[in-house]
Simulated assay, not measured.
Amino acid sequence: MSGLLAVMAMFSPGPVMSALLLASAFALLAGNCMSNRLTTRQIREDAAKLSRSVDQLETAEGLAGYGRWCIEIEPRRHLWSEEMCHLAGLPPGTPPREDILERIMPEGMEQIETVLDAHAQDREPFAIEFEVAERGEGLHILRARARNVFSAEGVREQVFMVVKDVSETYALRRDRDEALERAAQAQREANTDALTGLANRRYTMAELDRAVMEARRDEKPLSVIVFDIDHFKQVNDRHGHPVGDKVIAMVGDIATRQAREFDIVGRIGGEEFLWILPDCKSEAALRAAERLRWAIEAGTHSAPIPSITISAGHAEIEAGDASLILFARADAALYEAKRGGRNRVAQAA
């Protein structure tokens, strides 16, 4: 027994050993606490960095005018960034609840759903455009670049969108298109005879210059027909100028229907007209002039206006003819037709 006690005494801690053991335990505990404090501080620092990064991202998105919108498929839920509130015309912090979306996007949500259904299996980004009704400012057009997010099993779980307001782009495009249309309309009006809708004298003579140059370049025939209304002064004297205007307008309409698609028919004087027929020889041009003469005589005879006839002169381009010479030759043939009794077609010598 005394031997056992002696052995136990050898392994039992004395005052010094107990102090060492307690010191070691306190050191280990202090080390663990220090480690926990370091870990907590690191987490706090990382969280602060992440928060700053998020703030910087939202600031950058705000400056660029981009918002983020995530649509979770099942169950359906909407999440968006602060900038989306601004794009949607909502107060900051407004959540994208279904009732709010339906209010500001009465047709936009249907537009989005239609596109999402069409691109349900797409792995590549796709575009969506939709309208947002902003209070007091009418409709805004938003454009999104969207991408599906799939699970490992291939099930679409989310649609992530980056959204921008493109209303100004549409407005600029509309303004540009309207400006171009106004310019084109002004050009048409500058080139058009208001009474008949035909080309006016300035434009018709410019087209004659162009037709002559093309005929020479391509070595193709070119014919012109000059015609006017017989005894038109009597129409005005007997029936008045308003009736005379109706006669001129009807002659222009009949002439337009007789012309080919690439012909030019213009009003070059009070009751005088010029018909330019590219790639047309004399024989075909003379037949066209006769058809026109007959159509005007028959058409006005059955219309509620005075019955009239026309006289016409034809000329085909010859070597050395400038546009004014070609026109003068056809005009001389017109007066030859008048001297021959009117209501006829004459060919230039």
Results as ranks from 00 to 15, higher is better:
Gly136Arg: 03
Gln158Asn: 09
Gly136Ser: 05
Gly138Arg: 07
Gly136Cys: 04
Arg135Val: 06
Ser151Glu: 07
Met161Lys: 07
Gly138Ala: 08
Phe160Ala: 13
Leu142Phe: 04
Gln158Gly: 00
Gln158Asp: 03
Gly138Thr: 12
Ala146Val: 05
Phe150Cys: 11
Ile141Tyr: 04
Val162Asp: 05
Asn148Gln: 08
Ala144Leu: 06
Val149Lys: 05
Arg143Ala: 15
Ala146Lys: 02
Val159Glu: 07
Val162Leu: 15
Gln158Tyr: 10
Val159His: 03
Arg143Trp: 02
Asn148Phe: 01
Arg145Thr: 08
His140Asp: 10
Arg147Phe: 00
Leu139Phe: 02
Phe160His: 13
Glu157His: 04
Val155Tyr: 06
Glu134Leu: 07
Glu153Leu: 15
Arg147His: 12
His140Pro: 08
Glu153Thr: 15
Arg135Gly: 07
Val155Gly: 03
Ile141Thr: 15
Arg143Val: 03
Arg135Asn: 04
Phe150Lys: 11
Arg145Met: 07
Glu157Ile: 08
Val149Arg: 15
Arg143Ser: 14
Arg156Gly: 05
Phe150Glu: 10
Ala144Thr: 03
Val159Trp: 01
Val155Lys: 14
Arg147Pro: 01
Gly154His: 09
Asn148Met: 06
Val149Gln: 14
Glu157Ala: 07
Arg143Glu: 14
Arg147Cys: 06
His140Lys: 15
Phe150His: 12
Glu153Val: 03
Ala133Trp: 04
Asn148Ala: 07
His140Phe: 09
Leu142Ala: 12
Arg143Leu: 04
Ala133Ser: 07
Ile141Glu: 02
Ile141Gly: 01
Gly138Ser: 10
Glu137His: 13
Gly136Gln: 03
Leu142Arg: 11
Gly138Pro: 11
Arg143Ile: 00
Glu157Lys: 13
Arg145Glu: 14
Gly154Glu: 12
Ser151Val: 03
Ala144Trp: 02
Glu134Lys: 15
Arg147Val: 11
Gln158Glu: 11
Ala133Lys: 05
Ile141Val: 15
Gly136Asp: 05
Val155Pro: 00
Gly136Tyr: 00
Ala146Tyr: 01
Ala152Lys: 13
Ser151Pro: 05
Gln158Leu: 11
